[in-house]
Amino acid sequence: MKLSHIRDILAVAEAGSLRGASRKLGITQPTITRSIRDTENELGQSLFMRQPHGVVLTEAGHMFVRRAVAIQSEVRHIFEELEQAKGRFVGQVSIAVSAAASISIVPTVLQKFYKRFPQALLRVSESLLQPIESDILSGEIDFFVGPLYENRAAAGLTVEKLFDNRRIIVARRGHPLASATTLEQLQGAAWVRPSFSDRRDEADFEAIFERAGLPLPNIVMHSRSATVTVLAIANTDMLTILPIQWLDEFALGGQYIDMIPLEQPLHAAPVCIVRRGDLPLTPLAEGLCDMVRGAGLNYGMRLSAGR
């Protein structure tokens, strides 16, 4: 089996058709067909099921692709690391960040990264950890920056805490409950329950009231959009709970929305760097990781100081 066979099969799996893979790779369909046939003959199993409008992976095909993605990522890392060891910082770095990390860390890092590595390609996706754990393990994503709930990470991943995050109660400017200092004083309000990424957001929202010994609030709106949530808060008397970084993101503090400062802070999952534990990052990715580490630690210090 050749690396070109792996390349061709992954392209077909992603495109869902030979024609799409041919366009993506710039090679002929017969060449791709031979790659698939040769690989299937070597393995003794079919990787694709042909359909009228394309192809889909068989069960064996899914198993092949899962391993092949890791192989292709490591081959790319080999070439990039060798080039970077010569002082030529070319290639790419792929990271996933949570919304809170994208606000508090990424803007600080971008200018430094491109000043130091002007020829590099940076790929950034927004996610929580759980959906992309397998991508970190396969090498598709170099590392993740964001909250780590209950210190849970898949086997093979290492965790480095950057800072303890916190949440805030958010209301429109001039809200009648703006002077409240406890959750109990907010019990009569209507609430928006945000769930921007997964069900864990909802569970965390409810747990805040349970830990305070209070009944669940009057939830009148569920929102999977940060923008819609903030607009709803800015234009009604509804309240919500968000990571403190959202005030910076929307630059609305003091104009449209503001926080209700409670006596007891609402803690959130710590923001961490999560990466593979069995292989080092490329020099380029390690350089970015160092920048993220510095920016995260500095932000955590400002947050602890009451910023």
Rank of each mutant, 00 (worst) to 15 (best):
M1C: 04
H5K: 06
I9P: 04
S17G: 00
L18T: 00
R19I: 08
E42W: 11
M49E: 15
Q51N: 09
H53T: 09
H53F: 07
H62T: 05
V65N: 03
V69K: 08
A70T: 02
E74S: 12
R76T: 13
A85G: 15
F89V: 01
I95S: 07
S98D: 06
A101V: 07
I105W: 09
V106R: 10
L121V: 14
S125C: 12
L128D: 15
Q130S: 14
D135P: 07
L137Y: 03
D142A: 01
D142L: 03
F143M: 04
F143Y: 07
V145N: 04
L148H: 04
Y149W: 12
A154T: 07
A155E: 15
T158I: 12
E160I: 02
F163L: 06
R166N: 09
I168H: 01
V170W: 00
R172V: 04
Q187T: 06
S195A: 14
S197E: 12
D198F: 11
D201S: 11
A203Q: 09
G213M: 05
I219N: 00
M221W: 07
R224M: 08
M238L: 15
I244Y: 14
Q245I: 08
L247T: 02
D248E: 11
D248G: 14
F250T: 01
L252M: 14
Y256Q: 15
I260P: 00
P265L: 03
C272G: 03
T282N: 06
L284V: 08
L288P: 10
G294W: 05
G296C: 02
N298V: 12
M301R: 15
G306Q: 03
